[in-house]
Simulated scan of single mutants.
Amino acid sequence: MSGPRRLRAGLIGLGAMGRNHARVLAGLDGVDFVGAQDPAGDPGGSLPVPVVTDLADLLALGLDYAVVACPTALHETVGLELAAHGVCALIEKPLALSVEEARRLVEAFESRGLVAGVGHIERYNPALRSLRTRLEASELGEVFQVVTRRQGPFPHRISDVGVVLDLATHDIDLTGWVTGQVYVSIAARTVSRSGRPHEDMLAAVGQLADGAMVNHLVNWLSPLKERSTVVTGDRGCYVADTLTADLTYYANAAIDTEWEALRTFVGVSQGDMVRYAIPKREPLLIEHELFRDAVDGKVAGIVSLREGLRTVEVAAAALASAREGVTMPVHSAEPAARHPRQRHSERVLNPASVADE
């Protein structure tokens, strides 16, 4: 009697992120990592699988799915080729260079009934998963504002896009995901100080459909590496540090003060602070496990291509705003994602892990 079917997976692109994918694929339960493709091959011979230089040779190995970790400029070409051969795909973020390219990828995979997702890895960060669970339980009350800061030194591996598509798409996606809201407008300014043709700093202000304010600060010009998400509501604020996967809650104080100068201020005052204990599994491993399950026909919490398209639409609006110096509306033909509190029946995590998301 044969055992359960094992999926055959391939990898396209052996840059820094591609090699991380290779490490996870090599040990992923239920998956046979059968080969990788990169024009430069594998000079060091460090991969435990054959490495070919042409995509056709990788497809000839017979893949159930492939991870696309090549430069963003190649996502459309590679994705369309995979779809044409009936191969499911996990495509690194951003989905594509442009809204038009992203839409063509959505159509290619959906028209063939193929499972496809986008590698927005922050959705699998333990701090943000816990934050989303708490927001869905209305522990913060009404959300007023989401502020993200994502900065650090220039990554020399990136050459085909600027900070908006490479870094800010993380924050755009996670903001919509944790709040269950879509962007309706965005105003942005970008600068380029590194001598590259692409922007290396972004400051943006956006508005979500429920009226909440969004602020994003993103750059490649700081020696300080920072990955912070702060969500403020009428009961306090959450601070998620995705570098350390820590989540801290700062509550509004419920104690009256006798200090007259403070009593006349209409606002909030500092209350208790709680740092949550959260199990910290590797986000990339979680992403791979859920995508494997989706390809295997199970309901799984992957980032759909349509969600990836919405993120590219917001990024495109931010770049247009920076060029034209005006606030840009964000138009999308895609329906808004339902808020998590409406989706309990769709969860795929085991009951023991729900409280730890």
Rank of each mutant, 00 (worst) to 15 (best):
A9C: 06
I12L: 12
I12F: 07
L14Q: 04
G15H: 12
G15N: 12
M17C: 03
R23P: 02
V24L: 10
F33R: 14
G35V: 03
Q37L: 07
P39G: 03
G41A: 11
G45E: 11
S46M: 07
P50H: 12
D54E: 15
L59G: 05
A60Q: 04
C70W: 05
L74A: 15
H75Y: 11
H75V: 01
L95C: 05
L97N: 06
V99T: 15
G119E: 07
N125K: 11
R129T: 06
T133G: 13
S138E: 03
E142R: 14
V143D: 10
P155H: 11
D160W: 09
D166L: 02
W177P: 00
A187T: 09
R189D: 13
T190C: 12
V191G: 07
L202S: 09
L208S: 08
L217V: 12
V218G: 05
N219I: 01
W220K: 07
E226S: 13
Y238S: 05
A240C: 06
D241E: 08
L243H: 10
T248E: 11
A251V: 01
E258K: 08
T264H: 13
G267W: 12
R275C: 03
Y276W: 15
A277G: 03
V303Y: 07
G308V: 01
V326L: 14
V330R: 06
A333S: 13
A336V: 11
H339G: 07
R341H: 15
V348Y: 01
A355S: 11
E357W: 10
